[in-house]
Nucleic acid binder design. Sequence first.
DNA 1: TATGAATGAGAGTTCATTCAT
DNA 2: TATGAATGAACTCTCATTCAT
Lengths: 224, 224, 224, 224
Amino acid sequence: MDRQDLLQGSTLTAQRRQREKEQRYQSILQAAQHLFCERGYPNTKIQDIAKAAEVAVGTVYFYFRNKEDLLLQLMDAIALNIRSILGQAFQSGKTPIERFENAGRTFFQEFCLAHPYQLIILLRESVGITPEVEARRRSIFERLNQDVTSAIQEVMGEFGISNGFAAEVISVAIGGMMEKVAYQYLIWQDRSSEMDTITKEALAFIRGGLLSVLNNITQAEAGR
Amino acid sequence: MDRQDLLQGSTLTAQRRQREKEQRYQSILQAAQHLFCERGYPNTKIQDIAKAAEVAVGTVYFYFRNKEDLLLQLMDAIALNIRSILGQAFQSGKTPIERFENAGRTFFQEFCLAHPYQLIILLRESVGITPEVEARRRSIFERLNQDVTSAIQEVMGEFGISNGFAAEVISVAIGGMMEKVAYQYLIWQDRSSEMDTITKEALAFIRGGLLSVLNNITQAEAGR
Amino acid sequence: MDRQDLLQGSTLTAQRRQREKEQRYQSILQAAQHLFCERGYPNTKIQDIAKAAEVAVGTVYFYFRNKEDLLLQLMDAIALNIRSILGQAFQSGKTPIERFENAGRTFFQEFCLAHPYQLIILLRESVGITPEVEARRRSIFERLNQDVTSAIQEVMGEFGISNGFAAEVISVAIGGMMEKVAYQYLIWQDRSSEMDTITKEALAFIRGGLLSVLNNITQAEAGR
Amino acid sequence: MDRQDLLQGSTLTAQRRQREKEQRYQSILQAAQHLFCERGYPNTKIQDIAKAAEVAVGTVYFYFRNKEDLLLQLMDAIALNIRSILGQAFQSGKTPIERFENAGRTFFQEFCLAHPYQLIILLRESVGITPEVEARRRSIFERLNQDVTSAIQEVMGEFGISNGFAAEVISVAIGGMMEKVAYQYLIWQDRSSEMDTITKEALAFIRGGLLSVLNNITQAEAGR
DNA sequence: TATGAATGAGAGTTCATTCAT
DNA sequence: TATGAATGAACTCTCATTCAT
């Protein structure tokens, strides 16, 4: 065994270790997500998470500062995922309004239906836990809100108008709609098989509201 | 002192005692509401509530089965209040759409702005506490939803159409919107001074969405 | 209405009141006995006793100093009853040994079978509660023990011997035997229908033991 | 350090840890036994046990599900001990009756005098605590009873007779005698120095009863 | 006498977190 | 890195007892 081999060996070992570390981190995170959703955050013990992830309690604390940190990192991962999903959707489609609707559809299909646990963490299990968690929730939604607000302003641009405040309020409103529809039909009830129709109804309503607001502003400006 | 007096006397005493009991009950409930909102439900100790209500810990348990029961009864009182407020609003105004908008305005003005703590309990502190609490949350929103769905169907009736499913989904969407706008601008930010404008924007959006949906259905039916 | 009448009236009223007081006292005592046996002393709340006796909590404390006092007075009543029952039995029968056996039979028939709750209080619910309660238990059994020891000494007298110490030990042994047989076949198992046979077996054993001891002593003394 | 060493090393460490765990478990159990006897089960706080065992409260709950479980495991350990002591005694001696008397003597000498705390737990502190504890008590005595019943049947065999029911009742009776004598002279009074004489008197009485019963049955059978 | 609302010390139990190995 | 036994502060809930009416 020459030096090169030794180096290679240790490199490979290091790589494997790194991979294993990442896997452990992920398995803990997934176990936590699962249990938080099934039993609720306050009713989930670190003990349980460790058992589900097949590691010792101490190991959880090696990867996460504390229980709250576990939730925060979970939220961050979820936020990353949802933004990545929506980001792509916002780029597909020809017209701004089309892109907008694509994003809406994608939210229900690719996020809510595909990752119900992530939805539950974001809308239920991270609510009212701690000021820190609540702040993270807010900042996540703030960023999503900015994306949507930008999209709305783009649509507005098509109509030759610009109203940042209205765009923001409407963005918040649309966000709330999407959240509540998902909560109602996926968390409270399980109507996942009807999500197609539900999505259509909700998006029709949103498009209607959006266009109507734009037309009114346009007319109002024209009437001046 | 004759028999009548004795009877009256004891009745009056009994009445006063009953009144005092009711007052104690209310003062505990109010203390709980205040602390749940300020510190969060899980961080509020029964001890604290007792101190704030100026009673002993045991007294809290005389009026409420346990901490969860305290929250549940609080939620019920809030649900009663919001339904009473919205119920009146739904009866004012000439046209269905007018009544609908009145209710929306009333929600922000008479409920959210007037009773921010109740808003916080309903939207934040009662989320994800216990299956029981979550079930109560659901049933409260279910009932509100039914009211709004009815109102939407009334509006639909004006247009000579009827679509229960659409009405329900739109009701959920509108509910979510109101909730999120309130959460965003009253709980996360304090923009209570701008609530007038925000309300106007949000209601315009809703009216637009609603009318648009109705026109589309009408046209679709006409086009057949 | 003359003075005599008034006096009579008040006397009668006083009598009635006295009677009612006594009834209340008894109903509380009986409720306590029942609940102590069914749920166990530590699991019985004063609240429950009051409810069962159809009086207010405060009323229980008018008749009894505290929960322990309730148990102590119950024990005293039971001790009174058992001594009265056994006392009569010890006087029936011609020979000492016959009287002795009558008492044994009576214990099972007239006490254990007739008053199972009293048996349970004495043998189970009053055990290991408090030093005071334990002391009362001891003094009750001490007195019973003295009675039995006397009876044994009387039997010994017939044989022309006297051994106080042996009499005492045998008395304790016989007492323990009766207790355990009752506990086994009436509290742990319900073999009340077979108590006749069980009683016979047990009494035969006792008589045998007793006579054997007496003969041995006699022979030993004769052998000197 | 080669592989063998590593293996040995880890094994030794694991063994030592296992031993320490067992020691902690025992020290908690002993502390509980001591305190239950000195203060009574209901008056003993987990806090106190922890302090006496020089561990934290949480450690008690690491080894025992709850306070009741602590008592149950204590009872099991005691039952194991008493059966092992009596089991040996039942095997010493030539004749069945001799073995029987050896067991009786051993009960007083090797169990009651040597382990008074175990006696107190079994006869006083575990009485009337909980249905579960009472059930365990019953099953422990049931098993002891079976042993004694078997021994009696063996004695009967010597006389050429067999009466299972009588054997069982007599076994219960003898058990009750032993218990009560121990309770009276070791728990209520401290006459441990006189236990020799007391044992002799009690065993004479038992032997007398036993032989008398056997003779009677024999005569009765002969008389047929 | 009788009532029952009010009291509050106290106990069992939990569980996030630590740290020696 | 990983382990898991150990920790102990914290919290909910109980219930015997009191006392103003």
